Amino acid sequence: MRDFNQPVRATGPGVVADGPTGAATVLVIDPAGEAPHDGIPATWRELTDRLRIVWLRVPAAPEWKSTVDKVLSMHRDDAIRAVLDVVTSGPMAADVIDLVRHHESLVRTVLLVDPEIEVDEPFARVVVRSYDGPDDRIPAPLPLGHPDVVFGVVAALNELRSTTRP
């Protein structure tokens, strides 16, 4: 497992967002703290023409659970009530699933990357899993800004959209 305790990851904003207000929202809860500047990772920017991406950088937001509660409460109180999906990885999977259980009516799905737990919730699914092989250059969990993660998330969102249409 990768070490997320590098001091540089704790600097910068705790939350960054991009994309149209009122659009379907993807809340990314990032244990690695990517997006240390004022924008989401470049690999996600193409999605912001149709999705609202809210990126929570856990190392820069030590009270991340209360931040997630606040984001979910704002979503609950939003008149439009757009679709909300959550993405997280590795060591955060169990905590995020537990948190979403208390807001299940607000969150369509939790998409997981290299979770450290077995996933047994109807609202959660694994979208990317690393393999432990000699040519695996990036230790698990994959960074949430990795292109394979973006591809897996988009594929899952497209599948969800196609199964929820009348």
Results as ranks from 00 to 15, higher is better:
Ala10Gly: 10
Leu142Lys: 07
Asp30Asn: 09
Arg165Phe: 06
Val100Arg: 01
Glu63Tyr: 10
Ala61Phe: 06
Leu84Tyr: 04
Val8His: 13
Thr48Arg: 05
Phe151Met: 04
Asp95Ala: 15
Gly152Ile: 02
Val110Glu: 11
Asp85Ile: 01
Val127Arg: 07
Arg52Leu: 14
Pro31Val: 05
Ile138Glu: 10
Glu159Ser: 04
Pro139Ser: 01
Leu142Thr: 04
Ala93Val: 05
Ile53Ala: 08
Arg45Thr: 15
Leu27Thr: 06
Ala61Thr: 15
Pro141Cys: 05
Pro20His: 08
Asp114Thr: 13
Lys65Pro: 07
Arg57Leu: 11
Val28Asp: 01
Ala17Lys: 09
Val54Met: 11
Asp85Leu: 12
Arg50Pro: 01
Pro139Thr: 02
Pro62Cys: 10
Val128Pro: 00
Met74Asn: 15
Met1Phe: 07
Pro147Gln: 06
His75Met: 13
Ala24Thr: 04
Glu63Phe: 11
Pro59Glu: 04
Ala155Met: 03
Ala32Ile: 03
Ala60Trp: 08
Ser73Gln: 15
Val119Tyr: 11
Asp136Arg: 07
Glu46Tyr: 03
Ile40Phe: 04
Asp18Ser: 15
Ala140Val: 05
Gly33Ile: 05
Arg9Lys: 11
Val26Ile: 13
Ile138Ser: 05
Gly145Phe: 06
Glu34Tyr: 10
Ala42Gln: 12
Gly33Leu: 04
Gly22Val: 08
Ala35Val: 02
Val71Asn: 12
Thr43Tyr: 01
Leu51Lys: 05
Gly22Met: 06
Arg76Ala: 15
Asp30Val: 07
Val87Asp: 08
Tyr131Cys: 05
Val58Asp: 03
Ile29Tyr: 02
Leu142Asn: 02
Arg9Leu: 09
Met74Phe: 08
Val16Ala: 07
Pro143Gln: 02
Leu47Ser: 14
Ala32Ser: 02
Pro141Ala: 07
Val128Ala: 03
Phe151Ser: 06
Glu104Pro: 09
Asp120Arg: 10
Leu144Phe: 00
Pro41Ile: 05
Gly133Leu: 01
Thr163Tyr: 00
